[in-house]
Design a protein around this nucleic acid. Structure first.
Length: 395
RNA sequence: GGGCGGGUACCGAAGUGGUUAAACGGGGCUGACUGUAGAUCAGCUGGCUUUACGCCUACAGGGGUUCGAAUCCCUUCCCGCCCA
């Protein structure tokens, strides 16, 4: 396997592949730009795909250039959106960016990156400069983009400022003198515009690479916090493990390929095992989950999370650690009020529904009638649904 | 500037004077089944109350008509399309 083949493994789009491969094989050190969107500060597994890619390059001696989109975040990237994104304030952006970087440096070597902010060059961008940038494209060129086209068709609004997003991102490449730009496949349009902008400013066009977008836990849409199908990098090992176990079976190998260092041969083996039934999907998924969780925390926590999961779900035992909730000491409780007091329901109506639905257990006894008052002993175990359990402490 | 069409619950979308807390679909929650999930089936999906088809809040905002309005009228705001 040549150097370029190794570094371009898993890449979906590459332009120009020939040019890039040649530079990589020649051993040239490249500045690989990666845009950091500080509108969503919580990293999830989907972010990890390009970040792991960057790490591979970093270890091969290339320089990741992280561009914090502190201007574009205030516009809102229209990519993949059917609606305009909310615009953020300067303070929000700065705070988010820092949170993002902190999490990112768990994977990347902090000392071998260049961190830049768009405000460095856009901070005093004047109208003349802006119009010059705007002059690099026609409206038709920008409107051919899929997201816009769909929105036009659906008679949805498109903010004028959204049109400028690809231009600003493209100018970033000029500003940081990017050799290569990395992004998810949804960034293809923006990345390509970067090449055009560089050309318009008399610079060599960057090569671009895109990597796959990770599907979320629902197996349908791309992983995103707002869709509620994401596994957050900052979550605890047990939570992450449980979430990964809820992944649809058919995504096991995809996750392995995108989130772990599993080799191609190993992947084929798993695939074969799943197909002929010699490998239980549950176990394959547990292996995947342990691997991913271990990489985010450490090996020990990965194993512990696995054991805990099997304990609670397969063996139906109580979790080894149960959060304690202090509730008022009373001789007897209205069960609905108890649920609200314990933070298991937002309102008494909601509590009543849960009880009627048979979701509530107190000390292992299912309570389906909220009219029946209950007594709460010290250390009573309140269970609502399959995964929410607390220990009650009257006091 | 002119014409037209819109703004309904988390989302999409019905409803065009009364039995509408608002059909239907999606999503979410819960139960059964399981391999944990998915698929499947079932229930729930505004709040409050001594749970009662009782009360309160709700169909962009405000005002009005009416015994009664998401539904009619006036007005403000917002969005889309077409023409200029």
């Amino acid at each position: 396997m040549t150097l370029s083949e190794r570094l371009l493994r898993g890449v979906v789009n590459c332009e120009s592949r020939e040019h890039l491969s040649e530079r990589l094989d020649r051993g040239q050190q490249l500045r690989i730009k990666f845009g950091v969107d500080p509108s969503a500060p919580d990293l999830h597994l989907g972010h990890l795909v390009p970040i792991r890619f960057l790490r591979r390059w970093q270890m091969a001696g290339h320089l990741p250039v992280l561009v914090i989109g502190d201007f574009t975040a205030r516009i809102g990237d229209p990519t993949g959106r059917s609606a305009t994104r909310p615009q953020l304030s300067v303070e929000e952006v700065e705070l988010n960016a820092q949170t993002y970087l902190d999490q990112l440096f768990a994977v990347l070597d902090q000392d071998r990156v260049e961190v830049r902010r768009q405000s460095e060059w856009f901070g005093d961008f004047d109208l003349v400069a802006f119009l010059k940038l705007a002059n690099t494209f026609t409206v038709a060129q920008l409107l051919q983009r899929n997201d816009f086209d769909q929105r036009m068709r659906a008679e949805q609004p498109i903010g004028l400022h959204e049109l400028f997003y690809p231009l600003l991102q493209g100018y970033d490449s000029v500003a940081v003198r990017a050799d290569v730009e990395l992004g998810g496949t949804d960034q293809l349009f923006n990345l390509l515009r970067g090449r055009d902008v560089q050309g318009a400013y008399g610079e060599a066009a960057q090569d671009i690479v895109t990597v796959a977008l990770l599907e979320g836990l629902d197996g349908e849409r791309k992983m995103s916090k707002s869709l509620g199908n994401a596994v957050a990098v900052a979550d605890s090992a047990t939570v992450q493990f449980g979430q990964l176990m809820s992944l649809p079976d058919r995504l096991i190998t995809r996750y392995l390929a995108l989130l772990t260092d599993t080799t191609g041969a190993e992947l084929e083996e798993v695939e074969r095992g799943l197909e002929d039934g010699s490998l239980h999907p549950r176990d394959a998924k547990a292996d995947l989950a342990e691997e991913v969780v271990s990489s985010l925390h450490d090996r020990l926590q990965g194993q512990a999370a696995r054991e805990e999961f099997f304990r609670v779900h397969r063996d139906r035992a109580l979790p080894s650690r149960i959060d304690e909730v202090v509730v008022a000491a009373r001789p007897s409780w209205d069960l609905r009020e108890l649920l609200v007091a314990a933070g298991m329901a937002r309102s008494k109506s909601e509590a009543g529904r849960l009880i009627q639905g048979g979701a509530v257990e107190l000390d292992g006894v299912r309570l389906a009638d909220w009219r029946q008052p209950v007594a709460v002993g010290p250390g009573a175990i309140l269970k609502v649904g399959n995964r929410r359990v607390v220990r009650l402490r009257p006091g």
